[in-house]
Amino acid sequence: MVIQDISFVPLQAQLPGGGAYGMSKSLATARATTLVRLKLADGTEGIGEAWGMPQVNLAYLPLLKGYLVGTHVLDIEHAYSLMLARHYHFGVQGPLTWCISGIDMAAKDAAGKMLGQPVHRLIGGKQADKVHIYASGGYLTENSARDFEPQIEAMAKGGHRAVKIKIGVSPASDEERVATARRMLGPDVDIMVDINSNYTLDLARESITRLAPYKIGWVEEPLSPQDVSGYEILQRWSQVPIATGEALYTAFDFKRLIDRRAVDVIQPDLSLCGGFWQGKQIAQLAMMDHLRLSPHVWGSGVGLAAAVHFVASLPVYPHTNNVPRPTLVEYDLGTNPLRDSILKNPLKPVDGVIVVPDAPGLGIEVDWDAVERHALR
């Protein structure tokens, strides 16, 4: 079970002309990610996904291999700690942790295949046979006035019971978009909103005041990730739950927020926060402070599979048999060939849930022909 090699495959899927979509700060014209391939000495291969710019990840690969090749795959977390401690001048918020995240997914996938166990049994044990999702859409586009209602209509036709939409252009625009979504989806669908850190505290308060009557499930990233004091003030004031975490790295970042009880729902992204290695520590911090958790997912089908295993392994504490709000995994509805086409058996929700794979490792099979079509040259 010794690591023999690690390689990165940069992927990019260009969106069609006029098809850019995204958030209050920018629109995406392509979807990109880095696929991680980790090979053990016996030829067993694990697959992972690393966030960030693929070209930057590739530049880190020689450094990473120097620490990890020759390491027993079950000892790999000690090597991560050594890297972060030795290269502390690099910081944790950036490429080193992106790469560790994808490598950790791949390592757990490979270990599971070797041991004949699914990843969820390696990271805490199987607590759930299926996980609930929320549909993430309602994106801003080059022509949001034209494109918003068709996105919401597709959510309604899809029967989604929990959805998230993008806001953050202005408080007035926020109310207009949420009012439209509530009218089209009806009173019983759980609607979350995402500002993508585009507001200051005063604007966030104005927006939340306008949105509260529409029964919002949570307001996501209302403030900059650096504004911990602002989050603390907002969480104390807000009648709507506050969620954040997709731009936070390692348990250290989350601890600063959690210690101040400045958030209601934490949202680690396993492809950038440190993989399962840090995800488990973040979940432990949340459980100890009785906070909800919902992993952020906005990459390929590999990252989605990792999030499903992660949530399936989490305890329901402080609940028991009756769980008022199940832990939700984000399921992106945007045009994204990297989510489905690179896997032969992509995970897809049915009636609002994804069945947790029980095959060894992550339980997914890569379509290498499709990967080749999306490989960034």
Rank of each mutant, 00 (worst) to 15 (best):
D269M: 11
F8I: 03
A172E: 11
N321E: 14
L185I: 04
W98F: 13
I266Q: 01
A370T: 09
V240M: 04
V323N: 05
V356R: 04
D259Q: 04
R37W: 12
D104Q: 02
A212R: 14
G46V: 01
Y231E: 00
I233A: 10
G159L: 03
N143I: 06
A106Q: 05
R339G: 07
A128R: 08
I152A: 12
T33E: 11
A135M: 08
P241W: 04
P222Q: 13
A204E: 06
K255F: 13
N198L: 04
G102T: 02
I354S: 07
D174L: 02
P326K: 06
P171D: 15
E221S: 06
L347S: 12
Y67S: 01
R37L: 12
G230S: 05
S271F: 04
V69F: 09
T29D: 12
D188N: 03
L27S: 14
H296A: 07
A283K: 01
G168S: 07
I354P: 09
W51P: 04
A79N: 01
P10G: 03
P241V: 05
R377Y: 11
P360D: 07
I354D: 11
G125F: 00
G303N: 14
G279H: 00
A32R: 15
T327S: 11
L201A: 06
R177E: 14
T34N: 03
G159Q: 09
F252W: 12
Q14S: 14
G275W: 00
T200Y: 10
S313Y: 08
V163I: 10
I364T: 03
E220H: 03
D104G: 01
V163K: 07
P225L: 01
Y199L: 05
L257V: 02
P171F: 02
I258V: 05
R161M: 09
R121H: 13
A145R: 03
W237V: 03
F252E: 12
S170M: 02
Q14N: 09
T97K: 00
K130S: 14
A30D: 06
L338T: 11
R325K: 12
S197N: 07
L234A: 01
D109T: 14
P349G: 09
V73M: 08
L115S: 14
M1T: 05
M288C: 10
I258R: 00
R256C: 00
L291W: 03
T244L: 02
Q93R: 15
E77R: 00
E153I: 13
L362F: 10
D332P: 03
S238L: 08
E365H: 00
G43R: 02
M1K: 10
A312M: 03
R177N: 11
S197R: 06
Q12G: 11
S197Q: 09
D104V: 00
V73I: 05
G18N: 09
V9W: 10
N196D: 13
P171C: 04
R31P: 06
A85W: 08
D147W: 02
E372P: 05
I133L: 01
Q93S: 15
I191Y: 11
G217T: 06
T209Q: 12
L38Y: 12
H78A: 15
D190I: 11
M53R: 13
A181S: 14
L68F: 07
R37D: 10
H309R: 02
I195E: 07
V366R: 05
G48Q: 14
Q4C: 15
V311L: 08
L84G: 00
P54E: 15
